[in-house]
Design a protein around this nucleic acid. Structure first.
Lengths: 183, 183
DNA sequence: GTCTATACACTGATAGAC
DNA sequence: GTCTATCAGTGTATAGAC
């Protein structure tokens, strides 16, 4: 694999595992096998490298969700399938978790791809809820953007509860509770 | 105010603002006005100080929620009041946000008070949902611990979406969406 | 493109004087 | 209890050779 690619992938892993503040250029170099000079040749510094990594993680997350939400089936079925798919719950969401990091939130270049990813997800879910309304799966009173936000928030918050508890259980409970409300 | 108290309160603020990894003993000293020697006289180090601060923040959060959830009114009214109260959304949850920090999650002494606080909240909400079931506010099919987990997750995830978006709007949407499902 | 050398502030403490 | 001195290690680069 090329150096740039190895740098980006190593940074993705480290951001997921340690957050932005907790990820040092030195750690990226060690993980990727690239030297100091090499890293600074390809990227201006930590922030630019992190931006590339976050954009990549966001793109991967969107691609996966797009696939799961684009299948045949009713709106409720597709939402259930998306919510129920296997996740590394205790590691947290590779993208959403970065929203807890003050340096990410403070830098538009870093917050941007996080925002885009979660906003895209809310928008896509809102489309599906709207389709469900047309098919009579949801009452006319349901507001698609609201329900979509609730779905994404429950997922993101489920990760928080699970990591706090050191157990996947509260994540599962939260998802099941949401599905009971929807179905 | 006594030195210990100033140290704890400054650490609470810094943990909220910067997270555990991003909070240095030196920053705590600056913020509290305590010197190096003073800080290390009262606390063995960063971890012990952080534990005291997290316990304090957790206690404050529980006290506030207990008050709001202990008022007169139906279950749905109390849950709505709790969800709708004013929050500093863009700062995130002072306790829940720490679950994104790998060093907090890895250290039982630090994760403990985070877990206790969120678990207590889930438990208290489950009691209220159970009361609501008895009064016919919720169908018998509702599982209290599941709905409680969904409520807390929506809140915690709402913070995540808001910080990612740099706007309180998705937080509001997620809460409103949840209330529509419940009511 | 990649390497090594250098730099300077900050991190998280410990030691001993007062 | 609080102060100052000291310290080895890390963070985040820049400079210049190869």
């Amino acid at each position: 694999m090329e150096t740039v690619e190895r740098l980006i992938r190593s940074t993705q892993e480290l951001l997921w595992e340690r957050g932005y503040v907790g990820t040092s250029p030195k750690a990226v170099q060690r993980a990727s096998g690239a030297g100091q000079g090499s890293m600074y040749h390809h990227f201006s510094g930590k922030a630019e490298l992190a931006r590339a990594a976050i954009e990549r993680s966001g793109a991967e997350m969107r691609a996966k969700a797009a696939e799961e939400l684009g299948t045949e089936g009713s709106a409720v079925e597709r939402i259930s399938a998306y919510l129920g798919r296997d996740r590394e719950v205790l590691r947290g969401c590779p993208v959403g978790q970065l929203a807890a990091d003050p340096e990410v939130v403070a830098d538009p270049e870093l917050r941007g791809p996080v925002d885009e990813t979660l906003s895209w997800l809310c928008g896509r879910l809102a489309e599906i809820v709207a389709e469900g309304k047309e098919n009579g799966e949801f009452p006319a009173s349901v507001a698609p953007e609201r329900l979509a936000a609730t779905i994404v928030a429950t997922l993101q918050g489920g990760y928080v509860l699970a990591r706090a508890a050191g157990s996947e259980e509260p994540f599962e409970l939260a998802i099941e509770g949401l599905l009971e409300l929807i179905a």
